[in-house]
């Protein structure tokens, strides 16, 4: 009986690990192919598209990418800078104002508090895409195209982030914290900025990662509102790659892709522990 059971569990474990390792390779291998091919020349890729190691044509591919930049297409640095501006401002607005709203929902008792929270829950599931046409028409009539502001300001109202922040604040907040500050004569707004915000650091850190990555990866709205190449964000730069170099210089294409993916790759593996914990805490889906 015992022997039979252990054989069964050994087989189970072998199958289990085989599947886990296969899935792990599946996650990683496309990126390995990309990074290796980024260093290979067109000829090498044509001969064997499945690389086994890095090659020495990184410089050649880079030169080709630079040449296409001169023609006004792909420019990784511009894309990186623009994405950094948009994503960090989006993250700041979403975090600060969601914390403020969550504070209003937790610390004070007001008549519309429960209805307001119910409303936030209801709109959390709404796909952001459905109001796009009206939003863009509004941006047009204000003459705000080719401007980062309409990409950033809507982040002030982020229902899912408010929900997460409220859950966190409810678990950590006690009225005593602000009562003593009130006795010392601090105003409510100062209490929020100097006492409550620092208290929420762990929640802010996890949410910051997701808001930043979501904004960094966004393609839909930026490609509607931005049409000047010097304002393109990173995903839009990838899009310029598809049309421009297609089927001509595979090595350069892989290099361009690698440059758009590498920052997130480093970011992810540096913070993976917090990211995994964050997903399991909040379950925020873009």
């Amino acid at each position: 009986m015992v022997g039979k059971k252990s054989i069964g569990s050994v087989i189970f474990k072998v199958i289990g690990y085989a599947l886990l390792v296969t899935l792990g390779i599946m996650s990683l291998y496309p990126f390995i192919v990309m990074f290796m091919n980024a260093t290979r020349s067109m000829e090498e890729i044509r001969q064997s598209a499945l690389p086994f190691w890095f090659s020495d044509n990184l410089g050649g591919n880079w030169a080709f990418l630079r040449a296409s930049e001169a023609r006004g297409a792909f420019n990784a640095f511009t894309g990186f800078r623009n994405s950094l501006i948009v994503s960090s401002s989006t993250t700041f607005f979403a975090l600060y104002f969601s914390c403020l709203t969550a504070f209003a929902l937790t610390a004070y008792e007001w008549r519309l508090r429960e209805p307001f929270f119910a409303f936030i829950l209801a709109v959390m599931m709404m796909p952001g895409m459905v109001g796009t046409v009206g939003f863009v028409e509004m941006v047009w009539s204000l003459g705000m195209t080719n401007n980062f502001i309409p990409l950033v300001l809507p982040a002030i109202a982020a229902p899912a982030v408010v929900f997460f922040m409220r859950q966190y604040l409810r678990a950590t907040f006690t009225p005593d914290i602000i009562n003593s500050a009130r006795i010392d004569g601090a105003g409510e707004f100062r209490i929020f900025n100097q006492i409550v915000l620092p208290m929420m650091k762990p929640a802010i850190a996890t949410q910051a990662i997701f808001i930043f990555v979501g904004s960094w990866n966004a393609l839909f709205m930026p490609s509607i509102l931005l049409n000047r190449a010097e304002l393109f964000t990173m995903p839009m730069m990838v899009q310029t790659l598809t049309g421009n170099l297609y089927a001509q210089e595979l090595g350069a294409i892989y290099l361009g892709l690698a440059m758009t993916v590498l920052p997130l790759f480093i970011f992810y593996f540096a913070l993976s522990r917090y990211i995994i914990a964050g997903v399991q805490l909040g379950g925020v889906k873009e």
Partner: peptide
């Protein structure tokens, strides 16, 4: 202190009305 609940909710309400509700009704 109840009024602060309303005051601190203003940015969210304004931004949501301007950038989500109004565009949604406009689209409709």
């Amino acid at each position: 202190y109840a009024k602060y609940g309303y005051i601190f909710s203003i940015p969210f309400v304004v931004a949501f009305s301007l950038f989500t509700m109004y565009p949604l009704f406009r689209t409709a």
